[in-house]
Design a protein around this nucleic acid. Structure first.
Lengths: 201, 201
DNA sequence: GTCTATACGAAGATAGAC
DNA sequence: GTCTATCTTCGTATAGAC
């Protein structure tokens, strides 16, 4: 059984999801952040959705809202990184496609109401969360760099292209939300494939 | 002198800035939205920064927070559109450079604390503001389409490229904020120039 | 017409009953 | 250990004094 002490002392070292409640709250928090941003995310709503009293939030997350937001964003970062990493077997095009698919499915699932929670905290004003976002963007870019180099893109062009891939798809998710259409995301994804293709030769 | 009646009846038709106070509050609102998002924007803070009592906010903006946010975002949209439109004399590269420069200067001015307010409302959960963001993105994309076609890009490729330009630079501003560096924005801008160049031939 | 004072609700967080 | 009830703060909005 998870104790308060364990959560408090091991939380940052092993930010896994030890209980169903924790898992549900982290998932709900990621959704809420992607939908409304951290500021407008309400712990009351999250607790209600997870079916637990508000007070329990502070049992599972002694650090309160800050800890929950942090874990929600890092959890999303790791999950997406794993999907992209797996798809690297199909080359850089596969990695781009996998990254695109994550956001595509999120947009469809939520009827364009929810976007990337990492972008949300990157555009917020909490310095700690901004730093977390930086690290996650960096990890995604590193995966793309590896894929690009494997795919025959010159090493000196790879970092710029990797930034382009992450930044443009993050922006495309936002534009797709505004337009309530998958077209922006799909078009950007297609443009990226041609851009990478051109960089190969 | 501006009356409440005029503001209420003409607000949406002629959303100009009739007084210094209005101007200052709209400017402050745009900054706050770009920094923290609409939800975390406080009318108290805005009034304090503008040097007016909180109550005066509702004299100048009878529609309250919603009206102020709406005017702040549309004001930014028009201002940026004008800058891009002017730069189209220097071709599509000039338009991309102008769009890049707007956000570059904002990031430097605010030490990476403030991004594009249009992206902020596009990633928020207010449907009215999301629709406003859609219209502004569309206006920017239309300008890019015109520039691309003028620059010799085939008409059928122009819309996709225009979306790519707007989406990738919007995303790049967010990544630049997270990294506290202009490198992402500048690299994306450079990649866009090469992408457009390739599309010309 | 301008601004002070306040109403009212919702937020995060916590104390303490069980 | 879990959850109820509450504390404090801060948000938007407004009523009414001047």
């Amino acid at each position: 059984m998870t104790t308060v002490l364990e959560s408090a002392t091991l939380g940052l070292v092993t930010p896994d999801t030890r209980s169903d409640t924790r898992r549900r709250m982290i998932h709900g928090a990621a959704r809420a952040i992607g939908t409304r941003g951290v500021g407008a995310m309400s712990l009351r709503d999250l607790a209600k959705e997870a079916g637990v009293p508000l007070g329990s939030t502070y049992h599972h997350f002694p650090g309160g809202k800050a800890q929950l937001a942090e874990e929600a964003v890092t959890s999303t970062g790791r999950r997406v990184a794993k999907l992209v990493e797996s798809a690297r077997e199909q080359g850089i095009d596969g990695a781009i496609a996998a990254f695109t698919r994550v956001w595509r499915e999120l947009l469809v699932e939520t009827d364009f109401r929810t976007g990337c929670p990492v972008l949300a905290v990157a555009t917020g004003d909490d310095p700690e969360l901004t730093e977390t976002a930086r690290g996650i963007f960096a990890s995604w870019q590193d995966l793309m760099v590896a894929g690009l180099v494997d795919g025959g893109v010159p090493a000196e062009r790879a970092p710029g292209l990797a930034r382009m891939i992450v930044a443009s798809l993050e922006g495309a998710v936002a534009v797709s939300r505004a337009e309530r259409s998958l077209e922006p995301l799909d078009q950007v994804s297609a443009e990226l494939i041609t851009l990478v293709q051109a960089a190969r030769s």
